[in-house]
């Protein structure tokens, strides 16, 4: 290892410390007994009192339940629409309006959330005036708004997964007389399962995490968890939010590790099967 190697790895170490110290500090202070949040009360800590208080907070729990429902519906809707859009862009060749579709699926990736939020709200208000739907705003409008920006991410994931496979298999199946729908469900879909899984998880997280767009398109009684957290932390730090953060981080970390292991396993299985298919010839 030369000097530059040390510099490189040093920067990487510092960067990772920068990424993780705030999260770890939040986790440590969630066990602090003091109300003062960042002053460690050595005598009475660690304690689980903020976790207990969290479990008694019906408002936060209710908001969390709303968020889970919205995120699950969003992820499912975004995977369906994003898969179709990704398939169309990767496999349908040139067609009129393709460039426009491609632009519409990448713009939401970088669009500032306040702009998307205001645009969605004004759409819902105008629609309600015109055709009386959607009646008021709530979980439905939040879900529609979330699907729209989350499907852009799913489209990219699916499109790049499809671009990595050549279409020889699909072509062969068509040659042998399979219907296009059969080809899609028997060949294309199984090939892109890992992309669908990661797309679903990504869309779920994006929706579960969103505060700005939700704020614009939510109605009374449909406060999501991030909206509740945001209104609390704007008033200052509170120890039960630290406890909530710790629980969320642990759930997510477990989920990410498990899904990474699953993907690796799937990838290995695929490679093995390809190898077996080759040696069988």
């Amino acid at each position: 290892m030369n000097n530059r190697g040390w510099f490189r790895n040093g920067m990487l170490g510092l960067g990772l410390a920068f990424l993780y110290i705030p999260i770890l500090s939040m986790m440590v202070f969630s066990f602090n007994n003091s109300r003062l949040v960042t002053v460690w009360d050595a005598e009475n800590s660690p304690t689980l009192r903020w976790y207990v208080r969290l479990l008694e907070n019906d408002q936060l729990l209710g908001a969390a339940w709303i968020s889970v429902q919205i995120a699950a519906m969003t992820a499912t809707g975004a995977v369906i629409l994003g898969t179709i859009a990704g398939l169309v862009l990767a496999r349908f060749g040139p067609f009129r309006g393709r460039a426009f579709l491609s632009a519409m699926t990448t713009a939401p990736l970088v669009m500032p959330e306040v702009i998307t939020g205001i645009a969605m709200l004004l759409l819902f208000v105008s629609l309600e005036q015109l055709i009386g739907w959607p009646e008021g705003r709530g979980m439905l409008t939040i879900t529609i708004a979330h699907i729209t920006f989350a499907m852009a991410y799913v489209t990219v994931v699916v499109q790049s997964r499809l671009a990595g496979f050549d279409d020889a298999l699909e072509e062969a199946a068509l040659d042998l007389g399979a219907k296009p729908a059969t080809v899609f469900f028997r060949i294309t879909l199984p090939l892109i399962v890992p992309a669908l899984v990661s797309g679903w998880l990504l869309a779920f997280t994006l929706s579960w995490d969103d505060v700005v767009i939700s704020q614009f398109v939510s109605g009374p009684g449909s406060s999501t968890l991030p909206m509740e957290i945001f209104s609390r932390v704007r008033r200052g730090v509170s120890p039960d939010i630290n406890a909530l953060a710790t629980i969320l981080v642990l759930i997510v970390a477990t989920g990410v590790v498990l899904s990474t292991l699953y993907m690796k396993h799937e990838e290995k299985r695929r490679l093995r099967e390809e190898q077996m298919a080759r040696s069988g010839n």
Binding site: L16, Y20, P22, I23, M26, T38, I229, V252
Partner: peptide, 27 residues
């Protein structure tokens, strides 16, 4: 994975973590 992991945890809570670090009587 270590780079992406924080991205999966709440953006809002990660920003909030800095309030506790940067406050006048913060960490």
């Amino acid at each position: 994975m270590l780079i992406i992991l924080p991205f999966w945890t709440s953006f809002l809570l990660r920003v909030y973590a800095w309030v506790g670090l940067l406050k006048t009587n913060g960490v």
